[in-house]
Amino acid sequence: MDVSYVVERIDALFNVTNKEIYSSESGITYQADRKVKKVGYCVNLTLETVEEARIHGVDMMVTHHDAWDEIFGLREACIEKLAEYGISHYYNHLPLDDCTFGTNDSLVKKLNLEIVKRTHEWEGLYFGRVAEYNQEIELNELVKTMENLLEEPVKSWKFNDKKIKRVGLVCGNGAPTVCLKEAVENECDVYITGECNLYTIQYAEFKGINLIIGSHTFTELFGIESLALKLKENIKELEVVRLNEEHYEANIR
């Protein structure tokens, strides 16, 4: 099938209210002259994941992130490699953070939480959540659950003695204190995200909110996996495979 048909089936999964914003946060970055029979999914577009796509005989990559602007020259290098291997690439960023099957809602579901409200709005898209447990749990129990889910160690800071009932969540990069501030204002007992810096930790301590930090990549994996599986449901003849990524983020903290 054509790449354009696959993209149409992906786009049909989303409730697009602002086409301009949606187009700026998703789309094809490289289209090869090749029919699509096999799609590979992962969170990041990197030279390593492109190589994984080649190894798995993938015709098209579907990722959450495009190559990061902050990694100078990476996008050009990835497109060159995609062209060499004849592999198309599509990404979907903030719309996947916002939607009901995306990064945040998928992790909420894995944690057995119930969503209270969508938070962290940008241009009509919400990239955070407040959610609650039916019964309170200990912080260390939540930490263990996170490590089992992400299959990597996570960092945690205990800044109050309360059990956990209400959770603030921003999958990916919720390190800025303005993101944490919204969780504080929603009276969350713990804030979970995939990035942190000195200010994140000090602000959490200042406000007395517990903090759990996974990795940017693996807090968002379940969302892109959910997208790929929904695509498979819609196109029965399509083969879908997960492309492996390194857990190096967990080792640099």
Rank of each mutant, 00 (worst) to 15 (best):
H247Q: 14
T49D: 03
Y91N: 10
E249I: 14
G73R: 07
Q31I: 12
T217H: 11
E249Y: 12
E182A: 02
E246D: 15
L150I: 01
T46D: 07
I71K: 14
G57N: 02
E245C: 11
Y199H: 15
V178Y: 13
E245I: 11
M146L: 04
E245V: 12
V39A: 03
L169I: 13
H64I: 03
S4N: 15
L125R: 12
Y199W: 13
S26G: 09
V39E: 01
L142E: 00
M60K: 03
V108W: 04
L221I: 15
I115W: 06
Y90Q: 08
S156I: 00
I21Q: 10
G194L: 00
S226P: 04
D2R: 14
Q202R: 14
N251G: 12
H93A: 02
H56F: 07
A131D: 07
N140T: 06
Y30H: 14
E249P: 11
I87E: 07
A83R: 13
L125D: 08
T17A: 12
D33I: 09
V58P: 02
T29E: 11
D11N: 15
N104G: 08
V16P: 08
C179L: 14
S24V: 08
R118K: 10
S4M: 13
G40T: 01
K35H: 09
Y30N: 06
V178W: 10
I209G: 00
T193A: 01
E239T: 14
S215R: 01
I137R: 02
R118Y: 07
Y199F: 13
L13T: 05
D59I: 02
V170C: 11
Q202W: 11
K207H: 09
Y22F: 13
L229F: 05
N173P: 05
V43Y: 02
E48K: 10
V7Y: 11
N104E: 05
N251V: 13
C78H: 08
H120C: 15
R129S: 09
E141D: 07
R253M: 15
L238H: 09
H93M: 03
Y133E: 05
F206E: 15
N186G: 00
V6P: 10
I115S: 06
N160L: 02
E70Q: 15
L74G: 10
E114A: 12
T63N: 06
Q31F: 07
L74V: 14
L96I: 06
V178G: 07
V50T: 03
H93S: 01
G194F: 00
W157V: 00
R75H: 14
I224L: 04
S23W: 05
E138Q: 08
V178I: 10
I21K: 11
F127W: 13
N197L: 04
I115D: 06
V154Q: 00
K155T: 04
E246S: 15
N173R: 06
K109F: 11
E237L: 10
I10K: 13
I213L: 02
R242W: 05
V170E: 05
L47S: 09
